[in-house]
Design a protein around this nucleic acid. Structure first.
Length: 854
RNA sequence: GGGGGCAUGGUGAAAUUGGUAAACACAGCAGACUUAAAAUCUGCCGCCGUAACAGGCUUCCCGGUUCAAGUCCGGGUGUCCCCACCA
């Protein structure tokens, strides 16, 4: 094993960094800042490999930028509210707060053992009143500004647990825990008006040029802007209101054959009141949950009301009015016109209920007479047909004409609709931030006055019954109305935990401010220069945070639109999974290789190697970082994480890969153990004063330092590790003899220590100290590069004949094209492969390639 | 159903953005050291040829542009992810 115990070395340097407060950040407007942030963890109890990868990625960037002279802010904290704490309370009788804080203690210790360059003085836990009081205040400011409101909305309701379920918690239409069929129910909920910024959020995606394209597209699609028209249809009995419809295809209006309303449309409810069969139909529709699976299985059904509406453009044409289960109340106007020829869903519906199918768009290779629709709707390009005055127009012109015509008749206009809906933030949960509202019979919902903030959670709560403990607490919710003084009730819902994560990066910049954060700190530190985390937050957290910046700007907290200038989404950490003969997942520690196959150590029964999958407890393919760190050290774990896969891609955890990384770290520690202290090894030796071998090592060294810097900037950390190996191999191969050689040798090792320190900082410190380096390598500036070492005087380039590489030739750098051409044509291989033909053309790309075309 | 990513040796990958495909590692093989093993060091390692050269083939498949394609364009296959009765 290693000469000196690596874990001891690591603890030693961690103590030194602590004692020197090496990573404390202070605001200094005279220096350029760099804010590096990793998505903060939920304190589940122990760190996992995904955390190790995420935080190592961030630490490499933070330490590199520090070496490059930036005033780096690199904080860490805890996304501490959430359901698992309540489950622990339910299952093990622990209080959520105690459980959470214990987990934080545990995980902080684990993170510290990784040697991450955090400024721990800025640590934040979102469940602390000192944190959430500021978001209660923000919410009240949003309320004042009209960016928060209360509304009845449809939710998934679990009738056994008496609580709202998120869509993710509904499995096959049933509650994930209770197994009870989920109901749709209307509930009064608080909403944040994210739709007020829909257009802005969409347009600003364009400017997020340091975000991954796929995240940008996901947000783009999520916001889902549709342009079209809103138009109204009159019911021919004149008793009822007009029906407003949104469509993206106003050009197909002449092909309309029915109108369908959502089961929750106001008119539907009005009709259902007089019509018991319809009322039954509506409740059937609502019994089906809102989950994906439920929707997919649900058959498209309609209810014919017997009423007719007038076609707005064709005199005397009447369209039947249906209630249809596939029409959503939440999107558009909750009503559609069906044009079966050009919409698959409308066509299915029309065929089922025997409604006419009239094509009004015809592809260019068909004619109006021959073109028919049977069971596949036509959604492609073409010319309008059967469309009165619009016949002959193309689709886009048809849309414009249609909007013009509707406007002229005063029955419609152009309209834009978004898929994005306002953010419902109410949760019927205990372990969350209380919503600072008091409900008074006389005054309605009244904001909790500033001087009564924060509204804290009561500690004496019970989890023995389903439902919200806050709601059944004996006294907590009974308060006087702040406005009239009469008996009133506290809001017992708490905020969605995405509320906390939408602004935590602002708390880090000014963690003791009594207003959450100061505009001055925000002006200096924001935006986050580099944000790193999992792609699973591509939409929710990253979109909510973007909204929050705009809402906070609108309420005078700061002036900033975009919180994260750069975003890096890392891939998952995967591992081989195993199943035994009974099909149960087996831990890798329970098995061994025998005769080329896997067997259980315990009883020798065969085990089948499954797929390489994301590490997860259920598949038993997790590896605990703590074991790896105690067995190999943090430097090894960190280096391995950066080694093979580029950050954005999935990384497969392999034991042999870890051992490879550990061999490298051990190799460095042998260099450190054998190092001689040389005065002034940092200074760059002169090219003309060193031996040929030493010069070549200097070239490798300066090239490596140069390339590593470039590769860190572009997140090619796996290439950096390759550079470490090449540099180390070159150093190993060099046998210093003279004093000048020793200087070069120490110089190369010193450069290695600096460039390795973002990745494996402990061993880098050890090496630096062994060489006699001044101060900490953690504080060392990124090395200067002597450009003269980056250029060679000769290059070997490939010579092609008719596009195939036939030989190589060594030429002086920047050799003139004519000379290169002459040299190439003189080569015997070229002559041979030309086989007597005269070269028609010779392409010379200087320092790259020569291609002889013959 | 809609949108997006990815596809390169036995494996993870690299390729200066259109210019020598396979850097660096993992695994494997052979050797040195050792009583032996581990560790360490040295060498080999895309495929088909060959005694060895020479050749030929090769970046999922088919086609195109180009002196030149892993890279660009068109079509297809596989795979993963996101969204999904969105009018």
């Amino acid at each position: 094993m290693a000469e000196t115990s690596l874990p001891n070395i690591e603890q030693k340097w961690q103590k030194v960094w602590d004692a020197e407060q090496a990573f404390a950040a202070t605001m200094d407007t005279s220096r350029p800042k760099y804010y590096v942030l990793e998505m903060f963890p939920y304190p589940s109890g122990r760190i996992h490999m995904g955390h190790v990868r995420n935080y190592t990625l961030g630490d490499v960037v933070a330490r590199y930028k520090r070496a490059k002279g930036f005033n780096v802010l690199h904080p860490m904290g805890w996304d501490a509210f959430g359901l698992p704490a309540e489950n622990a309370a339910l299952e093990r009788g622990l209080h959520p707060a105690g459980w959470t804080y214990e987990n934080i203690e545990m995980m902080r210790g684990q993170l510290k053992s990784m040697g991450l360059s955090y400024d721990w003085d800025r640590e934040v836990a979102t469940c602390a009143p000192d944190y959430f009081q500021h978001e209660q205040k923000m919410f009240l400011e949003f309320l004042k500004a009209g960016l928060a409101y209360r509304k009845e909305s449809w939710v998934n309701w679990d009738p056994v647990e008496n609580t709202v379920l998120a869509n993710e918690q509904v499995v096959d239409g049933k509650g994930w825990r209770s197994g009870a069929p989920v109901e749709r129910k209307q509930l009064s909920q608080w909403f944040l008006k994210i739709t007020a910024f829909a257009d802005e959020l969409l347009e600003a995606i364009e400017g997020l040029d340091r975000w991954p394209d796929r995240v940008r597209t996901m947000q783009h699609n999520w916001i889902g802007k549709s342009t079209g028209a809103r138009l109204s249809f009159s019911i021919d009995d004149e008793k009822h209101d007009k029906i407003e419809v949104f469509t993206t295809r106003p050009d197909t209006l002449y092909g309309a054959s029915f109108i369908a309303l959502s089961p929750n449309h106001p008119l539907t409810l009005q009709l259902a009141a007089e019509h018991s069969e319809l009322a039954d139909f509506v409740s059937e529709c609502n019994a089906i949950g809102t989950s994906e699976a439920a929707i997919e299985q649900a058959e498209k059904r309609g209810f014919n009301t017997g009423l007719f509406v007038e076609h707005p453009l064709i005199a005397d044409k009447k369209l039947p009015l249906y209630i249809a289960n596939f029409v959503l109340m939440d999107y558009g106007t909750g009503a559609i016109f069906g044009c079966p020829a050009h919409d698959q869903r409308d066509l299915d519906f029309a065929n089922k209920y025997d409604l006419p199918v009239l094509p009004v768009v015809c592809p260019s290779d068909e004619t109006a007479d021959s073109f028919t629709i049977t069971d596949t709707a036509y959604t492609g390009p073409g010319k309008l047909i059967n469309s009165g005055p619009w016949t002959g127009l193309d689709i886009e012109a048809g849309k414009a004409k249609a909007i013009e015509a509707l406007a002229a008749e005063n029955i419609g206009r152009a309209e834009t609709t978004f898929r994005l809906r306002d953010w419902g933030v109410s949760r019927q949960r205990y372990w969350g931030c209380p919503i600072p509202i008091i409900h008074c019979d006389a005054c309605g919902p009244v904001p909790v006055p500033d001087e009564q903030l924060p509204v804290e959670l009561p500690e004496d709560v019970t989890f023995d019954k389903p439902g919200n403990p806050l709601d059944r607490h004996p006294s907590w919710k009974y308060v006087g109305c702040p406005s009239c003084g009469k008996d009133a009730l506290r809001e017992t819902d708490t905020f969605d935990t995405f509320f906390e994560s939408s602004w935590y990066f602002l708390r880090y910049i000014d963690p003791t401010s009594d207003r959450g954060f100061s505009p001055e700190a925000a002006a200096y530190w924001m935006p986050v220069d580099q944000y790193i985390g999992g792609v699973e937050h591509a939409v929710l957290h990253l979109l909510y945070s973007r909204f929050f910046m705009r809402a906070l700007s609108a309420t005078g907290y700061l002036t900033l639109d975009e919180p994260f200038a750069g975003l890096m989404t890392q891939g998952m950490v995967c591992h081989q999974s195993f199943k035994d003969s009974d099909g149960n997942w087996v831990f890798p520690t329970e098995i061994e290789k025998r005769d080329g196959g896997w067997v259980k150590i315990a009883d020798g029964t065969p085990v089948e190697a499954g797929r390489v999958e994301k590490m997860s407890k259920s598949k038993r393919n997790v590896v605990d970082p703590e074991h790896i760190i105690s067995a190999y050290g943090a430097d090894t774990a960190r280096l391995f994480m950066m080694s093979d896969s580029p950050p954005a891609r999935d990384l497969e955890w392999t034991e042999s890969g870890v051992e490879g990384a550990h061999r490298f770290i051990s190799r460095i520690s042998r260099f450190a153990a054998a190092a001689e202290k040389i005065d002034d090894f940092v200074s760059i030796p002169k090219a003309d004063e060193v031996s040929k071998e030493a010069l070549s090592l200097l070239k490798v060294t300066h090239r490596a330092v140069n390339d590593i810097g470039i590769d860190i900037d572009r997140f090619a950390f796996n290439r950096c590790v390759a550079q470490f190996h090449m540099l180390t191999n070159a150093i190993s191969d060099f046998k210093p003899e003279t004093d000048s050689d020793k200087h070069v040798y120490a110089h190369a090792l010193g450069r290695l220590a600096i460039v390795l320190s973002p990745f494996s900082p402990h061993i880098a410190e050890e090496l630096w100290a062994a060489l006699g380096g001044t101060g900490l390598v953690t504080n060392a500036a990124w090395p200067e590069i002597d450009d003269t070492f980056l250029v060679d005087d000769a290059v070997t380039i490939a010579v092609q004949v008719n596009g195939k590489v036939r030989t190589k030739i060594e030429l002086p750098v920047d050799c003139a094209a004519e000379a290169a051409e002459q040299a190439a044509l003189a080569l015997p291989e070229v002559e041979k492969h030309l086989a007597g033909r005269t070269p028609k053309r010779v392409i010379v790309v200087p320092n790259r390639i020569i291609n002889v075309v013959g």
